[in-house]
Design a protein around this nucleic acid. Structure first.
Length: 494
RNA sequence: CGGGGUGUGGCUCAGCUUGGUAGAGCGCUGCGUUCGGGACGCAGAGGUCGUAGGUUCAAAUCCUAUCACCCCGACCA
């Protein structure tokens, strides 16, 4: 075994995360732009796959895409009291343009509730204009003191849904619906189980009545907020005068929502599935599904093997798969194997002279056991119906990843009833999903964070936590002993 | 903004204490031999030593200033 370019997870999880990103060529630090990142082609390809699937789901639920300005008049941010308080510290502001100082500075959008509120006010007159269901794919900027690739950077890419409704009831339905879209996407496409829940007042979006979240469990036991959905009530409607005339002829403020997921999901993908060999990518998000490595010694062998590999690639592409035939010379097959494994290609096919003669190939899954000699398990596939064999393997691989993630999640969730056990669960650098009673006060929430670094990730939907079907039950706060009505989810988080 | 650290070929770093005019490994280019789990040989290309001053016959090395980045803390809809 040659040098291992990736730090093992057990040695240093944070370094492992950075190494996977570098070795899989997903992204790198922008270096000349503080706190920002360059998303490299292989990383962006994963985001494009995420976008394509999410966009289809948004359209299916009746939403339309639009685009709003990157720059927002500074005064807009100030119009909603909580919004300005939440975002002011992390705004980047444009004060000059065209060689002159601007009369009013612009902020680079940290999120678009305000500018969209302004235009919604123009677009909405009547109850017949509602609901208005808009989505925007965009980049946003939040000046962060401490950044982590994909998880928290100055600039990031996301989608933000913005909707306006005639009643609070419709607005609440939308918030629930879109959180479920995210949950389904995470499970079906990312092979990642998440827990739906409601944020505490302390963790709520600045300007929202209620924030819902999906929380993912990373391999090191920490939680990652993977998506959010906000009931904005009439807060932005009032701030931007977004009104409609109802059927009785009265003017009312609209009820609004916003919801988003971002390139942070790529971080979630890495920390959910990947291993010490590099990126592991579920087939439904893999930029390359199959890498074919030709094996040969002589020129004649090379010609026949490559001809065969290209033929297989063409056949698989007809099934809608992305296939790479690695024809690079001067590189031994083993080196190619490691490279494609680092990059998270789910399946590799090896085709050599013996395979050409037998009309077969060797298939190696990205996650495979080892045989009695310690060599990776491979299987032989016939070339006559290669599409069938490859399709089956990719389906099995997608299912395997979800199953593994679910098992890991199940093992990491515990229920705790006393402070001693709670502290043990978060001792040192440890984290997990801990279900415990909480007295409902922000003071206690902050005291627990101060003592253990663990925060309340959400008040989970009852029944959404595997193995713990009844979270709504009377109990005593794990910290203060005060009465509590339900268990909440604690974890350290990214 | 506190505390600590680092800036030297594309990357990782040595050299600095004790000044003498820049090195290694990897990567890259070319040729040849290799090729079923990370190849090897030979020949090459590539560096204003973060920046600006200062000391000196002479500075990557000593002094001053400054900038950038990293780690820990504070902060993080």
């Amino acid at each position: 075994m040659a040098d291992h370019p990736i730090t093992p997870r057990a040695t240093d999880y944070a370094q492992w995360y950075q190494d996977v990103i570098a070795q899989a060529e997903l992204a790198e630090a922008a270096e000349v732009v503080k706190g920002c990142m360059v998303v490299r082609p292989h990383g962006w390809a994963i985001w494009e796959k995420m976008q394509a699937d999410l966009d289809r789901r948004f359209k299916e639920t009746g939403h339309q895409n639009a685009a709003f300005p990157l720059l927002i008049p500074q005064s807009f941010i100030s119009k909603e009291a909580q919004h300005v308080e939440g975002f002011s510290p992390e705004l980047a502001v444009v004060t000059h343009a065209g060689g002159k100082e601007l009369e009013e500075p612009y902020v680079i959008r940290p999120t678009s509730e305000t500018i969209i509120g302004h235009f919604f006010a123009k677009w909405i007159q009547s109850h017949r204009d509602l609901p208005l269901l808009i989505n925007q794919w965009a980049n946003v900027m939040r000046w962060e003191l401490r950044t982590r690739m994909f998880l928290r950077t100055g600039e990031f890419w996301w989608q933000e849904g913005h909707t306006a409704h005639a009643t609070h009831g419709e607005c609440q339905e939308e918030v629930v619906r879109m959180l479920d879209v995210y949950r389904d996407f995470c499970r079906e496409v990312m092979a990642m189980p998440v827990i739906r829940g409601i944020k505490t007042a302390n963790e709520r979006f600045a300007g929202a009545l209620e924030t819902r979240t999906i929380e993912g469990l990373m391999q090191d036991g920490k939680a990652l907020q993977c998506g959010t959905s906000h009931d904005l009530g009439q807060n932005f409607g009032k701030a931007f005068d977004v009104m409609f005339q109802n059927t009785a002829g009265e003017r009312e403020y609209v009820w609004q929502t916003s919801w988003g997921v971002s390139t942070r999901l790529i971080g979630a993908l890495i920390m959910t599935h990947s291993d010490d060999e590099g990126l592991v990518c579920p087939p439904r998000l893999a930029p390359i599904h199959v890498a074919i490595v030709p094996i040969y010694k002589t020129d004649e062998e090379r010609a026949s093997v490559i001809e065969c590999a290209r033929r297989v690639a063409t056949e698989l592409r007809a099934d809608g798969l992305t296939v790479k035939v690695d024809e690079r010379e001067g590189m031994k097959p083993g080196a190619k194997y490691y490279e494609w494994e680092r990059k998270g290609v789910p399946l590799r096919l090896e085709i050599g002279p013996r395979d050409v003669a037998a009309n077969t190939c060797m298939a190696k899954r990205r996650i495979a056991g080892v045989d009695e000699k310690g060599k990776p398990m491979k299987e032989t596939l016939g070339l006559d119906d290669i599409g069938v064999g490859v399709g089956r393997i990719l389906d099995e691989f997608q299912a395997l990843l979800l199953q593994r993630a679910k098992e890991r999640q199940a093992k990491s969730i515990i229920s705790v009833d006393n402070w001693g056990d709670f502290e043990v669960a978060f001792a040192g650098n440890d984290s997990r999903f801990v279900l415990a009673h909480w007295d409902g006060t922000t003071a206690t929430e902050l005291a627990i964070k101060e003592a253990t670094k663990a925060t309340i990730r959400c008040l989970p939907y009852d029944g959404d936590v595997p193995g713990f079907p009844n979270l709504v039950e009377p109990g005593r706060c794990v910290k203060t002993g005060a009465p509590s009505t339900q268990r909440v989810l604690f974890a350290k988080n990214y």
